[in-house]
Simulated assay, not measured.
Amino acid sequence: MGREKKLYIVIVGLLFLISNVPIDEVSAEVRSTKIIYYNGKNIVDPDNPLEPDYVITVPADLSFTEEERRIDASVSMNNLKGQRYSGVKKARVTVESKNNYALEHTDNFKRISYTLLKYDTSGKGILLHNTTPTGGDKSEIGEFSKDNTMVKSEAILGVTTIAQKNIGIYSDVLTYVVENL
């Protein structure tokens, strides 16, 4: 019973202190924090898919909007707990665009171009493109190992001036391939 009384007195005391602070003396500082969730798909170790030593995480979905014209498309090598890989295996990741890096409208055959860039260790952007017809050599994202677990890349939407009659959903498919080295 004595403890409950003390708590009641402390709360009443705090309310008294708060109620005696003039409003014009209260100041506040506001900060914003950006919250990010990376929506990725895992591609398992191709030599051991049932008990993989690592996974390569690639973008699961890249959705452009007028406000979001630059999208993180980074690729990483992780262990099965989602942490950066620290084992001995090495892998090469390549990518190919179904529509040669253009979003196509399925009804009216219009296209909106976009670019896929990968960044080297100095931060220089390298344009990725299909180098041969579909099914041929693909653009290399990079070689991954415990010493290189991530390649920063970015998809950037091109000019999107679209006539009213052509408004709709435009899409492309990126195919990532992982091979052990």
Rank of each mutant, 00 (worst) to 15 (best):
P49S: 00
M150D: 09
E66C: 01
G158D: 06
S74I: 11
L128D: 14
T65I: 01
G82F: 13
R92K: 15
N78W: 13
E66I: 02
G40I: 08
T131R: 08
L127A: 14
D107M: 08
E67P: 09
K118C: 12
V55D: 15
L116P: 04
R70I: 11
N166V: 00
T65S: 01
N48I: 13
T160Y: 12
T134L: 14
N20D: 11
T160D: 06
T115I: 03
F144K: 01
T115K: 03
L62N: 00
K5H: 09
E4K: 04
I167A: 05
Y8N: 07
I156W: 09
H129L: 15
I43V: 14
A102I: 02
G40S: 06
K90V: 04
V55P: 12
G82P: 14
P133H: 07
K89A: 03
T121M: 08
E51T: 05
L7A: 07
N48M: 08
G123Y: 03
L62S: 02
D137L: 15
P133N: 14
V58L: 11
R92P: 11
K152L: 10
L14T: 12
V55N: 09
G87W: 10
L117I: 07
S153E: 12
N130S: 14
I126V: 08
V10Y: 14
E66V: 06
V55C: 10
T33P: 02
I169M: 02
E104H: 00
Y38S: 13
K138A: 04
Y101N: 05
Y114A: 05
G136S: 10
H129V: 10
